[in-house]
């Protein structure tokens, strides 16, 4: 008997993982460095900003020991531009994930290079929710972090939390509709592909069952045609090899 759990992470697990994201805080009190499993936190010296994991930042926020600086992409203007891009400019694909942090050389303009070029940076190791994150791009954990910040640090938002929240709801709806319609890309014979680039963790958790179901169904429907095609190819391939051998002789 298999585990009754569906494959993949559920919402609570995704939200838990999102708490590992680094956010920028403005401390109100001094706090010495804490020795955590993932390394030492920077010592907090008001009013200097520091980067802490989201869970710790939320804890300090609840104790009124720090204010959280919301990431730039959570600003209403950034959200509005993302919604505009998702609906008007590119109504099919999702908006791209944030680019890897780049390093511009002020002495030779136009030659910006990636920081840490050799390292292949991805979600948890990219500082995508700090104050230095680029605006206009949604990071992997956008929905979870945004919800957590709106709920627990609503007074730190650059605009009224309600406005941000309604923009966020619009974005969720737009992207959910995209997720639904993106399955129609599987219609083409054999070459059906769904691009999930730029889709957030929470959206994946929500749509995983559905998307996998559709892909599996398409696979089952096409299974016999695929088997026939393979057989044909094998026959053709075998013939080709034979002729090659003939040529060799």
């Amino acid at each position: 008997m298999a585990l009754p759990l569906p494959p993949g992470l559920n919402h609570a697990e995704v939200a838990f993982l999102a708490e590992m994201e680094m956010v920028t805080v403005v401390p109100r009190q001094r706090l010495e460095s804490i020795d955590l499993l993932s390394g030492k936190t920077p010592p907090l010296r008001p009013p200097h900003r520091a980067e802490l994991p989201l869970w710790l930042a939320l804890l300090l926020k609840k104790q009124r020991r720090a204010n959280i600086v919301p990431p730039p992409w959570l600003h209403p203007s950034s959200l509005t531009s993302i919604i505009h891009r998702e609906t008007k400019e590119d109504p099919i694909t999702f908006s791209p994930p944030p680019p890897p942090p780049a390093h511009a050389n002020p002495h030779s303009p136009g030659t910006a290079r990636r920081l840490h070029e050799e390292a292949n940076l991805s979600s948890p190791f990219l500082p995508s929710c700090t104050a230095s994150a680029p605006a206009g791009y949604l990071p992997y954990h956008w929905l979870e972090v945004a919800e957590a910040l709106l709920t627990h640090a609503g007074d730190d938002m650059p605009a009224a939390a309600g406005d941000v929240r309604s923009l966020l709801r619009d974005l969720v709806e737009v992207r959910a509709a995209k997720m639904r319609s993106s399955t129609s890309a599987l219609e083409g014979f054999g070459g059906g592909l769904m691009s999930l680039r730029g889709v957030g963790a929470m959206e994946l958790a929500e749509s995983r069952g559905f998307v996998l179901g559709v892909v599996d169904g398409v696979r089952k429907i096409g299974a016999s045609a695929e088997a026939a095609r393979r057989e044909e190819e094998e026959m053709g391939g075998g013939g080709g090899e034979e002729s090659d051998e003939d040529m060799g002789i």
Binding site: M179, R180, S181, T183, S184, L186, E187, F189, G192, F210, G213, V214, G217, V218, K220, I221, G222, A223, S224, A225, A228
Partner: peptide
């Protein structure tokens, strides 16, 4: 799918795939 395993039904496969995918987005 069972019938397609037993006999070649090229067109049926194409139509069904389109049906399934179109209805899937409606279902969602």
């Amino acid at each position: 799918t069972h019938m397609m395993d037993l006999s070649e039904e090229q067109e049926l496969g194409v139509v069904l795939r389109k049906t399934f995918v179109t209805r899937a987005s409606e279902i969602a």
